[in-house]
């Protein structure tokens, strides 16, 4: 038996909007730790890792570990039927073939049940080693979204370079080139507006802008985004989900042949 009650139901709605275009079908794993998902896109270029910790739910009952295969497009359709202020409860029976999403309006005058069919998904779980990253950039998520959107009108690939001067986002295409440099700026009124560049070693990596743009669908979840770069590893683009967890996107770099 599984019963997870999330008072801030809009978080789950936003989470689905952040991953449904990247991944079609995925297993949601439920354990005493929390509600989680790990999935790759169909071409195995990107991986998304979601964790919503059990402490973040008002009520969290998960009698035993459960993996529920869901079509994220269908799950998104159902969650779109929840109001932004609704409380969402996820319910499932052990060994059942459905999951129920219950939506309660804040005044308790409307209660809706949506039952969705589960599916068997043969997914491969990958081990993500803990890594020391060469450079970590934290910036406003809206700024990162703007940069990815702007650069994708010029080129297909972004080169992200971190030096002691700052972080540079570059692209090139048929019509020309573009370079956007951000310098560290911590003298801001609101901490979420800061640009913080932690450089242990300079790094420069190339990535497909199509994927970066897809990751920025998570922008409504968090005011800030953290980009972790190492020359040997996929980039990690992380958005915190309120106080309860995160969405991390891993993207394999483009490599010179």
């Amino acid at each position: 038996m599984l019963e997870l009650r999330l008072v801030q139901g809009s978080l789950l709605k936003k989470v689905l909007e952040s991953i449904k275009d990247l991944v079609n079908d995925a297993n949601f794993d439920c354990s005493s730790t929390g509600f989680s998902l790990q999935a790759m896109d169909s071409s195995h270029v990107a991986l998304v890792s979601l964790l919503l910790r059990s402490e973040g739910f008002e009520h969290y009952r998960c009698d035993r570990n459960l993996s529920m295969g869901m079509n994220l497009g269908n799950m998104s359709k159902m969650l779109k039927c929840a109001g932004n202020d609704d409380i969402i409860t996820i319910k499932a029976d052990d060994g059942g073939d459905t999951v129920t999403f219950m939506f309660e309006s804040p005044t308790q005058d409307k209660i809706a049940d949506f039952e969705m069919k589960l599916m068997d998904i043969d997914s491969e779980h990958l081990g993500i080693p803990d890594a020391e990253y060469h450079s970590i950039v934290r910036m406003p998520s809206s700024e990162f979204q703007r940069i990815c959107k702007d650069l994708s009108t010029i080129g297909d690939t972004v080169v992200i370079s971190v030096t002691k001067e700052g972080v540079k986002f570059s692209t090139a295409g048929d019509i020309g080139t573009a370079n956007i440099v951000l310098r560290q700026n911590t003298t801001v009124d609101k901490p979420e507006d800061a640009i913080v560049i932690e450089m242990n070693e300079p790094v420069s990596l190339s990535f497909a802008l199509r994927y970066m743009n897809s990751f920025t669908k998570a922008t409504p979840l968090s005011d800030t985004v953290t980009i972790s770069l190492s020359s040997e590893l996929p980039v990690v683009v992380e958005y915190k989900v309120a106080e309860m967890g995160y969405i991390r996107y891993y993207l394999a770099p483009k490599i010179e042949e």
Partner: peptide, 14 residues
């Protein structure tokens, strides 16, 4: 042009 890497060449099956 650089070649797109595959995530599975970085992270191994758990």
């Amino acid at each position: 042009d650089p070649k797109q890497g595959n995530i599975m060449s970085f992270f191994k099956k758990a």
